[in-house]
């Protein structure tokens, strides 16, 4: 289990990205991490990996996340974490050398699924293909806890929907997946839990089964949590109209 206690992150200049975050992530969960831009989703993930310094405590099965156990976590990010100058096959070789649990079979299946070339340098792939490759590497590392930050950018709806189905069938019972995305409706059938962030604070943490029992949709829950104001659209249009000037 990943346990986050009283996590705080303040960037240079004083802006507080995370504010007293307490969170537990359990094996087998598929967690959706939602929030508007700047809510702190990416910062939270980077803190878990130790890419950013923070105040607070993050443990993995009771131990701090260090170089000794960080291979149990994998990270797929829209900033990309691959080597642009080498091919997909070479990435597989590299991962095999460095991660004992690298899942070669999963790698081949997913490469086939997305139809990605294995012998082309990653920098020569399209932006959508690069994002797909990023997700593949995160899923194939053999990590127990998989974090995907905006993984589906640049992918068409058919690829995404099919991939959700493959993902559901592929993940083992001990694998935890945390997904940061704005595609709330699309992933609502995939995730088992939704964590809502706003201005660095957790403003909601709901099990999808609970929402289903209440008869509430995920989108409805999120709109309520963020005090969504549909009238702001009309306000803006009114101001833009000739009468509003």
């Amino acid at each position: 289990m990943i346990e986050i206690k009283d996590l705080e992150k303040t960037y240079a200049g004083g802006s507080r990205a995370l504010d007293h975050i307490d969170l537990e992530l359990h094996p087998g969960e598929i967690v959706g991490l939602f929030g508007p831009n700047g809510a702190g989703k990416t910062t939270l993930m980077k803190c878990i990996f130790g890419y950013l310094r923070y105040n607070g405590k993050i443990t993995l099965d009771g131990d701090p996340v260090t170089r000794k156990n960080i291979a149990r976590l994998s990270f797929g990010t829209c900033e990309h974490s691959f080597f642009p100058g080498i091919t997909a096959d070479d990435h597989a070789l590299f991962y095999r050398d460095h991660f004992e649990t690298f899942d070669e079979r999963r790698f081949r299946v997913l490469m086939d699924f997305f139809g990605l070339p294995t012998d082309r340098k990653i920098r020569h792939m399209s932006a959508g293909q690069q994002n797909q490759f990023e997700v593949i590497m995160a899923l194939c590392q053999g990590a127990d806890y998989i974090f995907l930050d905006e993984p589906f950018a640049g992918n068409d709806i058919f690829n995404r929907e099919d991939f959700y189905k493959v993902l559901l069938g592929m993940l083992g019972p001990g694998e935890m997946l945390m997904l940061s995305t704005h595609l709330i409706e699309e992933v609502s059938g995939l995730i088992s839990r939704a964590v809502l962030l706003d201005k660095g604070k957790i403003i909601g943490d709901r099990q999808i089964s609970e929402l289903e029992e209440e008869g509430t949709s995920l989108v409805g829950c999120i709109k309520a949590a963020y005090s969504y104001r549909p009238d702001r659209v009309y306000e803006a249009l009114d101001q833009l109209s000739p009468e509003g000037q």
């Binding site: 990996f49 130790g50 890419y51 170089r67 000794k68 960080i70 291979a71 976590l73 994998s74 990270f75 990010t77 900033e79 990309h80 974490s81 691959f82 080597f83 642009p84 460095h98 590497m137």
Partner: peptide, 15 residues
């Protein structure tokens, strides 16, 4: 080997 992206991978290694 210092691309902004690959550093995330390198820093997850046992090196």
């Amino acid at each position: 080997g210092n691309s902004r992206g690959s550093r995330y991978t390198v820093r997850r290694l046992r090196v």
